[in-house]
Computed example of a mutant assay.
Amino acid sequence: MELPELVRRRRVRRSFDAGAPVPRAVLRELVDLATRAPSAGASQGWDFLVLDGEDVGRYWAATADPSRPADRWLRGMRTAPALVLAWSREAAYRERYALPDKASGSHAPAGLDARWPVPYWHVDVGMAVALLLLAAEHHGLGACPFAVPTARVDAVRTAFGVPADRTPVMVVALGTPAGHPDDELGDVGDGEPGLPAGAAPRRPSRRRPLDDVAHLGCFGRPLA
């Protein structure tokens, strides 16, 4: 499949065939391709925690909120047979840019904080995840990126032995796309995440037109 078609075909999938595991060899290739992403100073301050089998259930147990029943989104996501947790490490960039080739010259401000107007350790992990999503599409897999709940980050670190200096940037659920388990049972569920039971679903978001996001020479001039 050509890259433009691959990019345009990619969609977020929120339910999977729980009985169709993702082969380890495929998971390894997805992560290998993700690590081919560019990173500032080739710092590569990323780690990928791959979970399959029983470890997937351990993730959902670590992030569960016992005070809230699982909503439709969560019931669908729990069918994913594999998860990839992408972590960033800021120190990798501080260490890299303290080396002589990066710590000198007019391009390197004296103050370390001034060198990082944006947290590129997170940006770079985002680029790596984008490659992983395209690789998943190439393999015919569904994928959905989402975040570790803020209140449960420490629980996830403890459950999987993640060092304290790693920050969870994104989780990617992976698997063979399938219908939502609620639909198979004839149950309409309780709507979208965050909506009260019985509330009308939000209108699906639409991709912003290219002329709204691409500017030629100055803002407001479409890229014709």
Rank of each mutant, 00 (worst) to 15 (best):
L112W: 08
M127N: 11
P119R: 14
Y120I: 13
E90F: 10
D113P: 00
E95K: 09
E95C: 00
H122P: 00
V129M: 03
P119W: 07
S106G: 10
R94D: 09
Y97W: 12
S88Q: 07
V123T: 10
E95I: 04
P119E: 08
L112H: 05
S106C: 02
H122F: 00
A130I: 00
V123Y: 12
L112E: 13
H107R: 14
L99T: 13
V123C: 07
P109F: 04
L131M: 06
V125Y: 04
A130R: 12
A103G: 00
L99V: 00
S104I: 00
P100C: 01
W116N: 04
V129Y: 06
S106E: 06
Y97L: 09
A92P: 02
G105E: 06
A92R: 15
W116S: 10
A91V: 09
A114H: 06
L112I: 03
D101K: 13
R96S: 03
A98N: 04
Y93D: 05
A108P: 04
D124P: 07
Y97F: 15
G105D: 08
A103L: 06
R115Q: 08
W121F: 02
H122W: 07
A114K: 14
D101V: 05
R89E: 11
V125L: 13
R96N: 01
G111V: 01
A128M: 12
